[in-house]
């Protein structure tokens, strides 16, 4: 297999300030033992609620955080250099208000080892701007002159100008209107084909993930609980958390019933540091058994590449 980035046993712990001075320091397991292979040309979606470690995973891949354990291997051999890039959620804070669009988009080029002279930047920058649907006359304007959607296009131009092989999109459409979101999503789809981009797309919006991604990983409290190809995941969600997540996504219901009222009542659980043994979803799981509390679930693989971490999957049918 030709994987571009392969992650093994990745961990990232953040210290939590302990109440007592002598008390044992607690750690928040933001990322806990994740294995993941990202293939060339793949659009991998990472979905989960806030606090599940999606962004931390993205930052670890980018090298913006150092891992507490585990490895991330880039490229198929040691000589290969994988160029990485990123687009953040908020296009208002991710663009320097005092720089022109040209300077913003040019910046990644200057930091490359193969930096060119100023004269040559112009064409490269313009190419990037045109490929995200902006024009030459907009090149010397400032970010405040643009709308949210256009700013996100500038951020995307900056991400692709250095011809990266891999981009981390961290909720790039969350702050945008649905109509603008559709424009940006279509742009990403187009770029994937046109310049052969591979990316991970982090989002809590399941509909967006379904639209844009070829494979999807579902995260819950620092772990990947399920990972499968797009259609397979939606047709056949296996993990109880994935099933719950898909059931609460609002849909335009033509034969409408007030689905929200009908959805089963979930007991509320206070946020706390997850226990080190057992399944992380134990407290909320409607299908839990004793084994789920005692041992972390083993990996089960079905349908070729559909991976799920759940005891339910092992020759066990629902019991009362």
């Amino acid at each position: 297999m030709d994987s571009m980035i392969s992650i093994k046993g990745l961990k990232k712990y953040f210290p939590i300030r302990s109440a007592s001075l002598l008390g044992k320091a607690k750690r928040n397991k933001a990322i806990d033992d994740i294995d993941l292979d990202i293939q060339r040309g793949e659009a991998l979606g990472i979905v989960g609620e806030s606090g599940s470690g999606k962004t931390t995973l993205g930052k670890l891949i980018l090298g913006l955080y150092s891992a507490s354990g585990g490895t991330i291997k880039y490229g198929s051999n040691d000589e290969e250099e994988i160029k990485l890039s990123v687009v953040f959620q908020d296009p208002f804070s991710s663009l320097n208000p005092r720089m022109t669009v040209f300077n913003i988009v040019k910046e990644p080029l200057e930091n490359r080892r193969d930096a060119k002279t100023n004269h040559n930047y112009r064409e490269t920058v313009l190419d990037a701007l045109i490929s995200v649907g902006l024009s030459e006359e907009q090149m010397f304007r400032y970010p405040h002159e643009f709308s949210g959607g256009q700013r996100q296009r500038i951020a995307i131009a900056r991400a692709i100008v250095s011809k990266p092989m891999f981009v981390v999109f961290d909720e790039p459409t969350s702050g945008l209107d649905v109509s603008v979101q559709a424009q940006i999503l279509n742009l990403l789809k187009e770029l994937k084909v046109k310049i052969g981009l591979s990316y991970i797309f982090i989002s809590h919006n399941v509909g967006v993930i379904k639209y844009i991604c070829t494979r999807i990983a579902v995260m819950y409290r620092g772990k990947i609980v399920e990972i499968a190809e797009n259609l397979e995941l939606f047709d056949n969600p296996l993990h109880p958390y994935t099933q719950h997540l898909l059931s609460v996504v609002p849909v335009i219901n033509k034969d409408r019933t007030k689905t929200i009222i009908e959805a089963a009542d979930k007991e509320m659980v206070l946020d706390k540091v997850a226990s080190s043994v057992g399944c992380i979803y134990y407290e909320k799981c409607p299908l839990r058994r004793n084994i789920c509390k005692e041992r972390a679930p083993a990996k089960s693989i079905s349908a070729g590449s559909h991976v799920v971490f759940c005891w339910k999957q092992e020759n066990w049918t629902q019991e009362k």
Partner: peptide
């Protein structure tokens, strides 16, 4: 507006923006 929303029940190739 309705067509611009990516939903989990649709399998569209392109969203109409």
């Amino acid at each position: 507006l309705l067509n611009a929303i990516p939903t989990i029940s649709k399998n569209d190739e392109t969203l109409k923006s």
